[in-house]
Simulated scan of single mutants.
Amino acid sequence: MKASSSLCALLIGLFTFSAQATIEINDPYARATPPRAPNSAAFMVLVNSGDKSVNLVRAATPAAGKVELHSHVMADGMMKMRQVENIAIPSHGKATLEPGGLHVMLFDLAAPLKEGESLPLTLHFSDGTEITQSVPIRKTIVESKMKHSHDNG
């Protein structure tokens, strides 16, 4: 009887594991900041090799007081950042987080983000997967000369 319950627990464990998406994080980086800049952003490509779609639902880092998932939208002729509840990653697909698009916004930085350093970033997914990665900090050129406005509404 004991072997039967052990086998059952093993099968349940395998089923639970196989139901989760397999997420890979490619080319992550955070934007370096000037000395007193309070905010930055992190970018990456999230690849889902699993059979079920999954959503990025939250991100966290001790380097920032607040972390939000964001998108850019054109509104009234201006590009505005908007918080989003989640970022979908389709099964056998990817979500690209890039400047001017979806990204992880880092608010109230504890210290400037310096090129060549890195920060820990934890990503939380809708299937319970949690990934912590050391994200390199890069100096980047501002990609656009469009007017930008930040709007949390």
Rank of each mutant, 00 (worst) to 15 (best):
M1V: 07
K2P: 04
S4V: 12
C8G: 08
C8H: 13
A9Y: 00
L10Q: 13
G13V: 09
G13H: 09
G13E: 10
F15I: 14
T16F: 09
T16K: 06
F17I: 15
S18I: 13
Q20S: 13
A21Y: 02
A21C: 04
T22L: 15
E24C: 08
E24F: 10
I25K: 02
A30Y: 00
R31I: 09
A32F: 01
P35I: 05
P35E: 08
A37M: 10
P38F: 06
A42L: 06
F43I: 07
N48R: 01
N48S: 03
N48Y: 02
D51N: 15
D51W: 10
S53E: 15
V54C: 03
N55A: 15
L56R: 04
L56T: 05
V57Q: 03
A63P: 01
A64C: 06
A64E: 01
K66I: 12
E68P: 00
E68A: 08
E68I: 06
S71V: 12
S71L: 10
H72Q: 07
H72M: 07
M74A: 07
D76A: 13
M79N: 04
M81C: 05
R82N: 15
R82V: 15
V84W: 03
E85F: 12
E85A: 15
I87S: 03
A88W: 06
A88M: 10
P90L: 06
P90N: 02
S91A: 15
H92M: 11
H92T: 08
H92G: 09
G93T: 05
K94W: 07
A95D: 04
A95K: 04
T96R: 08
T96S: 11
L97D: 01
L97V: 01
P99M: 14
G100P: 05
G101K: 05
L102F: 07
M105I: 01
M105Y: 07
M105N: 09
A111I: 00
A111W: 00
P112H: 05
L113Q: 04
K114V: 09
E115P: 02
E115V: 08
E117T: 10
H124C: 08
H124S: 13
F125L: 00
S126P: 02
D127E: 08
D127Y: 07
D127H: 07
G128W: 09
V135K: 05
P136V: 07
E143V: 09
E143M: 11
S144D: 02
K145M: 14
M146N: 10
H148W: 06
S149F: 06
H150N: 14
